[in-house]
Simulated assay, not measured.
Amino acid sequence: MYKHILIPIDGSELSMRAAKAGIELAKLSQGKVSALHVISPFHNIAYMGSILAASEIVYNAEAQENGERYLAQVKALADAVGVPYEGEASFGDQPFELIVQAIKDKQCDLVVMGSHGWRGMTRLLLGSETQKVLLRSDVPVLVCH
């Protein structure tokens, strides 16, 4: 069975449902979970530098705070059923890249993540981090809807 499950979270209800499923699998297989929240970096505009610099500081602080809150929710779920847990919030432009790297670095043998179920043109235009992970992961990915 699975000994180390990676659970990417974005704070949505869907990602929390995926977290619950991943934690339950870890409990059944006597494994552990690692939660990962990827924070999109603040994108600067060339002018109005001082205003944007202050905005970036505020954005980074709030984004980190939100990420820590999401991770604390997953930790509480894992602690409630006695599943070993570790969590991390990281900044990155491409969440799928950090997820795939975490799979390797943490030697995970399963990823459990949510998918918003976008189809057609919306998925084509916006892309899907879950789809990107599915295409690049060397381990199974359980997708929760």
Rank of each mutant, 00 (worst) to 15 (best):
Y2V: 05
H4E: 14
I7K: 15
P8F: 12
P8Q: 11
G11R: 06
G11E: 07
S12D: 12
S15G: 09
M16W: 12
M16I: 12
A21T: 00
I23N: 14
L25V: 06
A26R: 02
S29Q: 06
Q30S: 10
V33E: 05
A35E: 13
L36G: 13
S40K: 14
P41Y: 14
A46I: 00
A46S: 01
Y47D: 11
Y47L: 11
L52P: 07
L52I: 12
S55P: 03
V58W: 07
E62W: 03
N66W: 09
Y70P: 06
K75G: 02
A78Q: 00
A78F: 00
G82K: 09
E86H: 05
G87L: 10
G92N: 07
D93I: 13
D93M: 13
L98E: 00
D105S: 05
D105A: 10
Q107M: 08
D109S: 04
G114T: 09
H116K: 08
G117A: 03
G120P: 08
G120Y: 05
M121I: 15
T122C: 01
T122D: 06
R123G: 00
R123A: 03
L124H: 15
L124W: 15
L125V: 12
S128V: 01
E129G: 07
E129H: 08
T130C: 05
Q131M: 12
V133P: 04
L134S: 05
L135D: 14
L135W: 10
S137K: 03
S137Q: 09
D138P: 07
P140W: 02
V141P: 02
V141H: 11
L142Y: 00
V143M: 03
C144K: 12
